[in-house]
């Protein structure tokens, strides 16, 4: 619970300021410090398209598109992604307006202009975290191995292979050498701070799926 709170806090800062990062804290102490980007120097970007190209018009993948992206990227069905109160579909029922959808027939919300609500970043993270947890559980506990296969954070080459899978499935491209190196460094730091392979898998998935490159197009 404590780890999840810190991750969510960090992700809020990451998402709102527009760059996704793995951090490289070297030998510093706790997981909290490792994950807190505000005190880092020498950040290594996960996506080589480092700048938010404001000369272009990046659009947020609203509601249905976000759902499609998550389903395709993580090979999940609609109902596997996220449910609020175990019954409401997060994307189509509970948070459809927050994610940029409309409610034309009953609430007269005929359009949803390209602006975010205050809760949009948190809702996105909530949904992505749920989806990543599900994928990791299915892969590592039920043995589906669609993206992750069983391994260890100390096995660098296995980590590299998993990172490649992640990038190909989520961002539809190959990871660069820098990105693979950053992911391996992250795994190594996580291990030093008591994190497990499952933790690494969930956090890596979450980090990529809350990046600008994934959420915008």
């Amino acid at each position: 619970m404590h780890l999840k709170s810190i991750i969510l806090l960090v992700a809020v800062f990451i998402l709102s300021c527009g760059k996704g990062k793995f951090t490289n804290q070297g030998d510093s102490g706790s997981i909290e410090e490792t994950l807190n980007p505000s005190e880092n120097e020498g950040e290594i970007t996960t996506t080589e398209s480092a700048s938010l190209a404001l000369g272009s018009k990046l659009k947020f993948k609203k509601q249905k598109l976000l759902e499609q992206e998550i389903m395709t990227s993580l090979s999940l069905s609609q109902n596997q992604i996220c449910q609020e109160l175990e019954s409401l579909n997060c994307i189509n029922e509970a948070h459809h307006l927050t994610l940029g959808g409309v409610d034309a027939y009953d609430k007269n919300i005929w359009e949803n202009k390209n602006s975010f609500l205050e809760t949009t970043p948190i809702v996105v993270e909530r949904i992505v975290w749920s989806a990543c947890e599900k994928r990791v559980a299915l892969d590592l506990e039920s043995g589906e191995s669609k993206i992750f296969s069983k391994g260890s954070v100390s096995d660098s080459s296995h980590v590299g292979l998993m990172v490649s899978n992640l990038y190909q499935n989520i961002l539809a491209r190959d990871a660069s050498e820098n990105e693979i190196a950053a992911a391996k460094e992250f795994a190594s730091n996580l291990e030093k701070n008591g994190g497990t392979y499952d933790d690494w898998a969930r956090l890596s998935c979450f980090s990529l799926m809350t990046s600008v490159e994934f959420l915008f197009y």
Binding site: L9, V12, F13, S16, C17, G18, F116, E118, P121
Partner: peptide
């Protein structure tokens, strides 16, 4: 964090 969501908005950049 909550305050930052109210007072510092990515839309300002746009």
């Amino acid at each position: 964090t909550w305050f930052s969501l109210l007072e510092a908005r990515p839309s300002t950049i746009v």
